[in-house]
Design a binder for these strands. Sequence first.
DNA 1: TAATATTGCTATTAAATTAAAAGTAAAAAT
DNA 2: ATTTTTACTTTTAATTTAATAGCAATATTA
Lengths: 154, 154
Amino acid sequence: MKKEFRSGCPISSALDIVGDKWTLLIIRDMLVKHKKTFKAISDSDEKIAPSILAARLRMLELYKLIFKTKRIENKKENIYLLTEKGMGLTPIIIEFSLWGNSNLQEFNDIDAVDGLSIDKTLIIKAVQDSYYAAVLSRWRSASNIYDESIILGD
Amino acid sequence: MKKEFRSGCPISSALDIVGDKWTLLIIRDMLVKHKKTFKAISDSDEKIAPSILAARLRMLELYKLIFKTKRIENKKENIYLLTEKGMGLTPIIIEFSLWGNSNLQEFNDIDAVDGLSIDKTLIIKAVQDSYYAAVLSRWRSASNIYDESIILGD
DNA sequence: TAATATTGCTATTAAATTAAAAGTAAAAAT
DNA sequence: ATTTTTACTTTTAATTTAATAGCAATATTA
């Protein structure tokens, strides 16, 4: 658990884990779109192949950016949730969104991102709070099970 | 100039350009380490292959994140400089550095990053100002030439 | 209860990308 | 004039990605 890193540089090391075309999109789906299952993530606009998604989820679990659980009533479906480490990527996701929005309009039709004029730290906090309230609050460590019977929005 | 983007999502579009293991490291070398030549970037800790570096520089120029120039006195050596779009990646670089530093210590020996306790926006401004003063200030658009005869630190 | 559909993958194969190494031409330095 | 440096390109091999099909377990529907 050492040779997969090209150097001791924190930027380089972060890129060794999330530096590819798919990993941060999976995090975006979970964090911003509140997706929790293999199927839901598979159905994104960008059409990730199942083999790649499976490999990435395995790797994200290995580095503890996500963890896997189940609903009480469903033995089959896996529920993927972000850990603190994973939620810590929020600022990176936000900065990518801001940069893409400001710098790529001449090359691609970029979807409008609303609320970009608000202060960045507020956006980051809002995204994290929303993920916590809408998704993570249903996680009960007592039984290591994801319990959607707690009725909340989403 | 449209089909290289997977969707209209700004995050996805940003990743279509800088979402790989090398591109942001090249930007780091230029922005933080003030590297300006093919050779200097080749000599980084992470040992990028010349074929990949050449391809990335070409692509960064295409998307106007960098531009290429020469010194008055050297006909051979190319000088690569960041544009505004390229410098706009500073917050992303900083966030990667902070995240890597806080979250990967258990997997890799991460180099100490000094001054992390300072406010983020100050770090971002400091990095950008430093790049401007130490590197970009020598760019004279009159002759489209990089002029190092302006004596400044670095 | 039986048939059908869904989910979460794995397996397979083809295509594309990356990595490593060597080579080259022009210019710079000695 | 010779050697070295720079900025690449070329080549080939290895790895990764992409697309598709398949499959077992579970869940849903009839």
